[in-house]
């Protein structure tokens, strides 16, 4: 007997998603729960299995109070993420609108913009951090007044700018190369969004006599706003799993050479919970302002 379309679709949905559901419980949720348990224990490996020795909150206390650098690095990494996030989002938005325009050589420029996605992953970035020639290049660049020093001199006498804002602007200029290189995927996502805005909307507002400026704020920006959230989440995920993330390196070192698995798990847990809270706050703040277009 052949089932009806609706019935088949219901069963089909379960069938298609079943592999992931199994994998989620076996290879994701189960290890995650174990990770939570490990963070309250010390892990001892034996030849056939592993044992846990309960330590209570000791691992967390170690991470926050005893470890000489965890707290400082933690604050630094989170701070860096929060300062870079708006820059990356703004830059990728801007770059996507640029790349969406018609001009000669567009295909080549687009291909180049996404190149960092390939080059800036994993081991390459990690080695780059301690590479002599790269450090020299950076030194030469800041010496030549790329961003930092020159900007500071320019604004030094300015009374109009509060110092924290000045620091932020200078920091932004200095991290511009990093921002550009970590925006590849985000540009791609915004570009996809720009392409999917129906042409009729632009035509309609043009007939109503909207200026390009109004067109941007009344059409482009609201239509892209759902992607803001996608990109923010991606940026946070990307930075928190990066191989050159100081905290990730510290967690790994603690695991292999330092105070052991339990302490490393506690550090990773503190880090993860903080990230989750940031994501939640960002989501709450933004989702209220997002405009969903339904056609």
């Amino acid at each position: 007997m052949r089932l009806s379309f609706e019935k088949q679709k219901k069963i089909g949905g379960f069938l298609f998603t079943l592999p992931f559901v199994i994998g989620f419980f076996l290879f994701f949720l189960y290890p995650l729960v174990q990770a939570v348990i490990f963070s309250f224990n010390e892990l001892v490996l034996t030849s056939t299995t592993f044992e846990l020795q309960p330590r209570g909150w000791e691992n967390y206390r170690y991470a926050l109070q005893v470890h000489p650098e965890f707290t400082r690095t933690f604050v630094e990494v989170i701070g860096q993420l929060l300062t870079r996030l708006p820059l990356i989002i703004a830059f990728s938005f801007f770059a996507a609108t640029l790349l969406n325009q018609e001009f000669r050589g567009r295909a080549l420029v687009r291909a180049l913009f996404f190149l960092p996605v390939i080059m800036s992953a994993g081991i390459v970035m990690r080695l780059e951090m301690n590479d002599y020639s790269v450090i020299m290049l950076q030194a030469a660049r800041s010496g030549a007044g790329f961003g930092g020093a020159a900007l500071r001199n320019l604004f030094a006498d300015s009374a109009y700018m509060p110092s924290w804002l000045l620091d932020y602007v200078i920091g932004a200029a200095e991290s511009l190369p990093i921002v550009i290189r970590s925006s590849g995927v985000q540009i791609l996502i915004f570009l996809a969004g720009l392409q999917s805005i129906p042409r009729e909307i632009y035509e309609a507002v043009s007939v109503e006599g909207a200026t390009p400026w109004e067109r941007f704020w009344l059409v482009t920006f609201p239509m892209l706003s759902p992607l803001l959230l996608t990109n923010i989440i991606y940026t946070i995920v990307d930075s928190l799993t990066a191989m050159n993330n100081q905290l990730v390196i510290m967690i790994r070192d603690t695991m292999l050479r330092g105070a052991g698995y339990g302490a490393a798990m506690a550090m990773a847990m503190i880090y993860f919970v903080t990230i989750a809270i940031i994501l939640l706050v960002v989501y709450r703040l933004i989702s209220r302002k997002i405009f969903y277009y339904v056609d």
Partner: peptide
């Protein structure tokens, strides 16, 4: 939501339990 959740958990957090499993 589960699929998105797997994205935001850093792999470093679950790599040790996964190794043991």
């Amino acid at each position: 939501a589960m699929a998105i959740f797997t994205l935001i958990v850093p792999p470093q957090l679950i790599i040790v339990p996964m190794y043991l499993n």
